[in-house]
Write a protein that binds this DNA or RNA. Structure first.
Lengths: 205, 205
DNA sequence: CCACAAAAATGACGTGCCGTCAATTTCATA
DNA sequence: TATGAAATTGACGGCACGTCATTTTTGTGG
């Protein structure tokens, strides 16, 4: 009886490698939440595991790289959510609202874990990691499709994608500050802004 | 014949203090632009001045604090621009467009100085400094006034202010990537999005 | 002009983190 | 079990930080 249904026999070698990497990420997430990105040291992170300091550098080149991996992790978990929203949507408006809801819910969940210090000391948001870029590309693709299908007027998809992301990024924290955070209201606000807003946007080309 | 028309006699004491502080800020701006925020060290900064390492700490407590001072500096220079736009505006739409134009122009100018590396290696944007918060407050106040005067439907001013800022922050870099950067188009895009977008936004309360 | 006190500048120093690396342990394979 | 590859270990050199006793500069009163 194999341990997993996977066809990979996976030796102990590989298993500890992914386990170690995961352990570092878990510890890093906690340390960043507790101390903030700036104050956290690689030693703080490695102390939260059973590993020796040198081992850290077998997995990541720097604190920065761990942080990017965490951010990428978030983006990577978010992308399938975005895709499902896209596939299930009955209309473009439906998709847009679902996407915002999914994002805000995601943000709320991310910030709910790891004890109380919900916001403040939140590490800087980086938007230039590979996975983040992929999210941007996906959003942009959706918008271009919508334009091609006539669901949207023919506006600048690049600007629009950035506007969507900007709105999401700023509205997320603003929503979290409310008590209780109201995901649906924030999403409706954003959706309305985008959908109706396009009517006033200048045409591209 | 006094050196300045100021009524302050200002001794040499105070004069070197502001000069030193300024020298540190100037050096810091250059060093951050050259090395990036992370890689830059306090010593790199102080080396760009005629001062000794210990002197740095008479003026700032850390690299972080210098960076905040620089960011604050930017925000502080931007606020009067915003106010002028507000006072000269003939309508709310006019104000909004002027504000976006002013912001994008500001971003373009900021990134044009200090040699070539226009973007990339740009230090993290912090939005939690006092002056940044003041900008947010000012934007929000303008929006609330517009709502009170009936220029805008009665929507959530907090969300709207954040949406404006989010759009500005994301569209700025996106605009810079274009060649040539087109401030007016980007501003028109943002303005249209906000103005028309409000019609679809949910009412607050 | 000088003496003296307050303020500021200096740079050497203790501390702690970083990233490396030779030595060691663990694992896969025959 | 023997053997080599792969991964782990922790000590070490180097560097940046922030402090502080000392020195220099500035303002003031005699």
């Amino acid at each position: 009886m194999s341990e997993t249904a996977s066809i990979e026999p996976i030796g102990k070698r590989e298993k500890t490698k992914v386990a170690n990497r995961q352990a570092i990420l878990v510890a890093a997430r906690r340390v960043f939440a507790e101390l903030g990105y700036e104050a956290a040291t690689v030693r703080d992170i490695i102390r939260g595991t059973e590993l020796a300091s040198g081992t850290f550098y077998n997995y990541f080149r720097s604190k920065e790289e761990v942080y990017e991996a965490l951010a990428d992790d978030g983006a990577r978990r978010f992308r399938p959510i975005l895709r499902v929203a896209r596939e299930h949507a009955k209309s473009f408006e439906d998709y847009l609202r679902s996407a915002f809801v999914a994002y805000f819910r995601f943000v709320a969940e991310e910030n709910a874990e790891e004890g109380r210090p919900v916001d403040e000391r939140r590490p800087h948001v980086r938007t230039d990691t590979p996975e983040m870029m992929a999210v941007y590309q996906e959003v942009r693709q959706s918008l271009e499709d919508a334009i091609a299908h006539g669901d949207l007027p023919h506006v600048d998809a690049d600007y629009l994608a950035h506007a969507c992301i900007g709105i999401a990024q700023e509205l997320g924290p603003a929503m979290l500050r409310r008590s209780p955070p109201d995901i649906d209201t924030a999403a409706a606000f954003a959706t309305g802004l985008i959908l109706k807003g396009l009517e006033g946007a200048p045409r591209k080309d």
